[in-house]
Design a protein around this nucleic acid. Structure first.
Lengths: 141, 141
DNA sequence: GAAATTGGTTGCTTTTGTCAACCATTGGAG
DNA sequence: CTCCAATGGTTGACAAAAGCAACCAATTTC
């Protein structure tokens, strides 16, 4: 791999790290942490066991377990032991969990809209294409 | 901004956040934290006051100040009060700071090479173009 | 020359994350 | 069938990352 390619990628990574940190501020207006929001989102889209969540998020299982417990205590999710395998607990959003997720989504969407407010629509289309390119290339393995 | 565009961008952001978290593991082989590495790098490229650093990194000034102090204690950087303005302290890498940065760079480069080891070179070129597109569009304002 | 601003430091707290030990259940090899 | 390794999840202890607010000294503004 070429030296200057590595340089460019590291440059982008540094840049995008600060973008992401700023973008994540959406949760400050809610009473959720970033990870709590992320967990609600992932559970809702079907990653509904602790094990799946830690694979998607690549975080420590102890950490995930703790935050899930907090969400359960706040009655945003339920845990139900799977019949097929008693070790597995299937997670689901409660009605108030779904409401919370909608609010979180709204804020996150707002944040993105705001970040892109000065980018014109043909450029947005190109950026999205660029993002998808990056994502598919780095996902396949 | 279109609903599905926002969706795509958020999808990418989630994806790239985990990529970055993994990539950042390079620092585990050194005894530096991510931020310490980043500070050495930014000081070296000329962002050599606390104030410039916090603008680039968009982090809390208290936090930056503390980490800089640690770097100073470890004799990786020096602070020297600017003559033109006694509030400003000009930062510089010591020789061992430069050595440390070289080692960090080497590890980080390795990490990137590794991440892209299965991506072929025409795809790499496209990814880099994509990254640069994203970066320039989001930087101009 | 007083008042507001700026660059930086410090005390305190919260958020985020790791590591290791552990328990119960399950799947597989002999 | 039984022992045993692997799996899913929980808990305790702790370290790393980051923010907030109050503050000091130098500087600028008016």
């Amino acid at each position: 791999m070429k030296k200057e390619d590595i340089y460019s990628i590291r440059e982008f990574d540094r840049f995008y790290m600060t973008v992401l940190r700023l973008t994540d501020k959406y949760h400050l207006h809610t009473h959720f942490t970033i990870l709590e929001s992320r967990l609600l989102l992932e559970i809702n889209r079907g990653n509904n066991t602790a094990n799946q969540l830690l694979k998607v998020l690549k975080l420590d299982k102890g950490y995930i377990s703790r935050v899930l417990k907090k969400l359960e205590n706040e009655q945003l999710i339920t845990k139900q032991t799977a019949e097929s395998d008693l070790r597995i607990k299937v997670l689901a959003l409660t009605p108030s969990g779904k409401t919370a997720l909608k609010e979180i989504d709204r804020r996150a969407d707002e944040q993105i809209s705001d970040l892109f407010k000065d980018v014109d629509s043909t450029d947005i289309a190109q950026i999205i294409a660029a993002m998808q390119k990056i994502q598919t290339e780095l996902s396949k393995d």
